[in-house]
Design a binder for these strands. Structure first.
Lengths: 339, 339
DNA sequence: AACGCTAATCTAAACGTTTCGAATGTGTCA
DNA sequence: TGACACATTCGAAACGTTTAGATTAGCGTT
């Protein structure tokens, strides 16, 4: 900027003025300065600007795993939204580990991100303190966090699973296996409640041996399914509360020599692009990823636009049951349908 | 830092010294300063540091679409690698659009990223100038760029497709449809060559009506497949040079009332997690995503570590044909096998 | 001709670090 | 006792911006 000022024979203040349009500058000087900028190929240093202004026009986004198709899609939407608004986004993957998350949030804060969107892990760690300090706005994504009162957009997980399990019950299933992730994550907790309530609403018992817990990965789904399938009175249907784990479920079914949906019905959380192309076409609970991403971005952008002390808003969106053909009717119902 | 200095009754220079270990500081002062840091909850301002040091410990990463599973995986690996090295990564999606890419690269450069990893789009745009200026190191990912001589890691695309198509030919296929993306992208160009060479090596003609070009999206694959399948002498196999497009291919096959592999064989580029779970299990060319991501990260990290003027290195990795059951043997071969 | 008003431009401080060189103190050696 | 080396600490400039306030010039009024 100094060089531009010299070349245009003006002060740096004037250059800054035309760059930002913050003051009226005569046409001649404007012209000279613009020419000098082109000649020199000057690019304004956003770091120096950030230091002075106290804002970086950068936000931090952390998710447990970007390879989980739900997060892939949401990250993509969020990235686009902030790109349109002229913000950069720093992406971090916490690998479902609290220490990693704390470290990455610190990294982002050190770099003075203007805001944070977090799909939290564990108990939230340092998140609570950050929200309380209220220096940088935080919006929670997908997962609420106990004791952390801030903007959030989540799914009505309980209702979504309730609907899905009720659907299985309507098909005639009575023993429905359930595979979940760690229950300290709010969606996992809520989904579990949805499962139990659906059974209870139908007057069915909640058999603890049908509930298995894993750590979100394919292998965990595989192991859980193996256990369910080796029960002496094995379930006729399995609902997997997490998408990567359902891959493990399908592999376990195949490896054990069964097939879906003939021998066992399967449904799961989170839709994915291939779900209606291959056989079986998996029945899933689809989250409105586009809306989730956009709403999260909007909540944060509004805070960034200055609306700091409005009360926190929690947006709760509805899932949608995508009925395909991985679940088959059972018993009397099956008779009527095939007849 | 000023507050810390005051609280510990020392100068800011001394605080900086203990923070960075750049000078010997007496045990008492060190102690006092550390205490003050804890008391105040001081966090060093990375922006100010960056301004002074001229380095942000942040890199920029641009890909066409993060939802393409190949890029999802590679981004994930790269993110992890830089995280380990204490770098933040700014992620941008260019949506396969050159203007968007230019804009985003400018955005990243404004923010003084220390380096860039780019899966380029179009003809590279401003990339060439940036590499020539040599202020920030650039490594090309997945796609080389004409006239841009810099570090790169790509696949041996030609060989990979050659192998895949040769496999189809060995199965007895003679008319093999080929669906590609825009040919100004080096991998698409090279894959096409691999296709032609495989046919020529087998003494088969290259029928232009069997080659269709799309814009990387599912819908393009759908349309291209529809065209191929409505040919009066339709192909017995289709190879899709891009993963999202193969979804369109599968949908088109289904919509037209055919089935894979009975009526038509399908193979495609890029593996995905579900590929061996559902039916048909798709035969794919798997890229070594882990290695690609790590090598790209390493190339850049080495440059960042100071090795600036070594000649550019191009790493060419090998793909792997994952033979599953979406391609069936034809003619005489089918007889022998089923006999 | 002196005055005030407005518009255009500039000067200089500030943002929070790092770092060079100067200053201070302490012990060693001739 | 003075000179010197060494260890420790500090003052102040610098990084590239923004911006409040000062300065200057131009112009219409009286």
């Amino acid at each position: 900027m100094l060089h531009v000022a010299e070349a245009a024979r003006v002060s740096v203040a004037t250059v800054s003025a035309v760059l930002n349009g913050t003051a009226t500058v005569s046409p001649e000087l404007t012209q000279r300065i613009e020419q000098a900028i082109r000649d020199i190929g000057y690019k304004r240093n956003a770091i120096a600007r950030s230091l002075k202004m106290g804002t970086t026009r950068t936000i931090g986004l952390t998710v447990p795993h970007i390879t989980n198709p739900f997060f892939t899609d949401v990250v993509s939407v969020i990235q686009q939204a902030f790109d349109r608004a002229g913000y950069a986004v720093m992406l971090c993957c916490t690998d479902e580990d609290l220490n990693t998350q704390d470290e990455q949030i610190r990294l982002l804060l050190d770099r003075m991100v203007d805001g944070l969107i977090v799909a939290r892990v564990g108990d939230g760690g340092i998140l609570k303190g950050i929200v309380e300090d209220a220096n940088v706005p935080v919006v929670l994504l997908d997962r609420l966090c106990e004791g952390v009162d801030t903007d959030a957009v989540v799914l009505d997980n309980q209702r979504a699973v309730f609907d899905a399990v009720t659907y299985l019950i309507h098909l005639g299933h009575r023993r429905i296996g359930y595979i979940t992730g760690a229950s300290d994550i709010s969606p996992m907790h809520d989904r579990m409640i949805g499962y139990r309530e659906a059974l209870q609403a139908a007057g069915l018992p909640v058999a603890e041996e049908l509930v298995r817990s894993g750590n979100f990965h394919e292998i965990d789904g595989y192991n859980a399914t193996m256990q369910l399938l080796s029960l002496h009175d094995r379930p006729s249907a399995i609902f997997s509360a997490n998408n990567p784990m359902v891959i493990g479920t399908m592999k376990a079914i195949r490896d054990i020599g069964l097939s879906c949906p003939e021998d066992i019905s399967v449904a799961c959380f989170d839709d994915f692009p291939w779900s209606d192309v291959f056989v079986p076409q998996l029945t899933t609970v689809a989250q409105p990823v586009q809306a989730i991403g956009e709403q999260a971005a909007n909540l944060l952008l509004e805070r960034l636009a200055g609306n700091r002390d409005a009360p926190p808003r929690k947006l709760i969106l509805k899932g949608r049951l995508m009925i395909r053909n991985s679940c088959r009717p059972l018993g009397a119902l099956a008779q009527t349908i095939s007849a």
